[in-house]
Structure formats: structure tokens, C-alpha cells
């Protein structure tokens, strides 16, 4: 097979690598820097950003984000898994309306729904954290539903009949055969739902009204504020690194 000329391949490849890696470098460098004197190619290394982040209540904020991500996953995965089963196996028909409805949040601007819900909170007497969780779950459900739906679509529904025919009750068939078969999709769905809760900014900002301080809230406050690059970068890395680590660990486990 003939190939493109080396100029295209090397030039283009190098540009793509630079394009993808360059935007991540500032927070990586600044998070390990105390200062960056003008004219220097690299900063003066140090951990002042992390010390300040710790003083800025980074740890409790990370914990709040973790809890938020876990709660969103704990709700969005089961209800998405149920819907994904109905859509993937087309139980009782193709359900075009449900399929469209469950995809709709992808199109809707989160800030607008957050404003709409926030206006109602006082009237409905719903606590703010509950409303944050509910709305984040709405935005996580499309992912969990469609990830599980694909897994069911790739699994012959006769496998449950087979389990029944070997003496399993309906519950046993689902628990001992179907769920293990779609387990990778359930984990992927949980990861997506966690990501929605962990990385949310605008819904927590609008509905939380500044009282629910999650890690992204700290990042945004620092990034838009005084120009403390080491602090902003340390907080940003603290939000991004666990996700990257989880992704890499997930890849290793799958091998």
C-alpha cells in the first residue's frame, strides 16, 4: 500500500501532537512552580501551589465532589440500566419517544435548566443539594442509558431464556447471567455518571448558590481571580489527575 509523503505524515503528526499536548502544559508546569521569572524558559520549581490549595480547603472540596459524583452515579446507573434494557432489547417495541426523551438533555443547555429549577426551589421547598443532585442526574442519564443500551443490543436476549431453562428464576437469570454479561458497560456508565457529578461547575454554581463548594468551584474562583497561577494549577491538576489516573487504571485492568 502506498503512503502519503513523509512531509505530510511527519509534519502533520507533529502538529497534532503539539495541538493536543500544549494546552495541558501550563497547569502541569505551574502546579509544580513557586515562581516563573520573566525570560526563563521553565519556572522555579516548588510546591507553593499545593500548600495554598490545601489552605484553600481543597481536600473537603474534593471530598464533596467525590460524594456528588458517587451519588449521581448511584442514581443514574440503575435507572439508566433499566431504561437501557428496555431500549436495547426493544422490550415491548422500539419506544421512539422514550429513546428521544432520554437523549434530550444532551441538547439542552445545563445553565438554562439550572436557572429554571432554581426559580422553583423556594416554592417547592427542595433543599439545594438535592436539586443539584437531581439535575446532574438528569444530565447523566442519557450517558448511562445509552451505554447500557448498546451493551444490551449486543447481547442476545435468549441468554436469559437459556438461564430460565436451566432452573434460574427471572431474578436469578438477570443477576447471575445478564448483569455479569453487561458488567463492563455498567462500569463505563458509572464512570460517565461520576464524571458528570465530579466535573460539574455551572449547575452547582447556579443552584448551590455558592454554598456547595466543590472542587470545580474552587478552580473557577481561583482562575477568574487574582492571577495566582500556582494555586489555580494545583487545584486544576487535583480535579483532572484522578480522572486521568482512573482512565489509565481502567485500561490496564481491561488488559
Amino acid at each position: 500500500m502506498s503512503r502519503f509523503s513523509p512531509l505530510w505524515r511527519w509534519g502533520g503528526g507533529a502538529l497534532l501532537l503539539i495541538w493536543f499536548v500544549l494546552p495541558l502544559l501550563p497547569i502541569m508546569l505551574w502546579s509544580l512552580a513557586d515562581r516563573w521569572p520573566t525570560g526563563d524558559l521553565l519556572p522555579t520549581w516548588g510546591l507553593v501551589g499545593w500548600r495554598e490549595a490545601y489552605g484553600d480547603h481543597m481536600v473537603p472540596a474534593l471530598l464533596r465532589s467525590t460524594v456528588l459524583g458517587l451519588i449521581v452515579a448511584a442514581i443514574a446507573v440503575p435507572i439508566g440500566a433499566l431504561a437501557g434494557r428496555a431500549l436495547g432489547w426493544q422490550i415491548g417495541g422500539r419506544h421512539p419517544w422514550s429513546a428521544a426523551l432520554l437523549l434530550a438533555p444532551i441538547a439542552l443547555p445545563p445553565f438554562a435548566l439550572a436557572m429554571g429549577l432554581d426559580v422553583l426551589l423556594l416554592r417547592l421547598h427542595i433543599p439545594q443539594p438535592v436539586a443539584v443532585v437531581v439535575l446532574l442526574t438528569v444530565f447523566a442519564v442519557p450517558y448511562t442509558t445509552y451505554i447500557v443500551r448498546s451493551a444490551y443490543a449486543g447481547l442476545d436476549s435468549q441468554i436469559e431464556d437459556q438461564a430460565r431453562m436451566l432452573g434460574a428464576s427471572a431474578t436469578q437469570a438477570t443477576r447471575k447471567v445478564t448483569l455479569p454479561a453487561i458488567a463492563p458497560a455498567l462500569w463505563a456508565a458509572a464512570a460517565m455518571a461520576f464524571l458528570v457529578g465530579w466535573s460539574d461547575y455551572v449547575i452547582t454554581l447556579i443552584i448551590g448558590g455558592g454554598r456547595l463548594v466543590t472542587a470545580p468551584i474552587l478552580v473557577a474562583a481561583s482562575a477568574s481571580g487574582t492571577g495566582n497561577e500556582p494555586l489555580t494549577s494545583a487545584l486544576a491538576v487535583a480535579v483532572a489527575l484522578p480522572l486521568v489516573a482512573a482512565l489509565l487504571i481502567g485500561r490496564l485492568v481491561r488488559r
Binding site: 470545580p216 482562575a223 486544576a236 480535579v239
Partner: peptide, 12 residues
């Protein structure tokens, strides 16, 4: 890059 939140990308 995929799981990195947009907010973090924007800060960087």
C-alpha cells in the same frame, strides 16, 4: 483529554 473537564482546560 476526553475526561478532563472543560473548566480545567479553560483554566490551563
Amino acid at each position: 483529554i476526553l475526561p478532563v473537564p472543560h473548566l480545567i482546560g479553560a483554566a490551563s
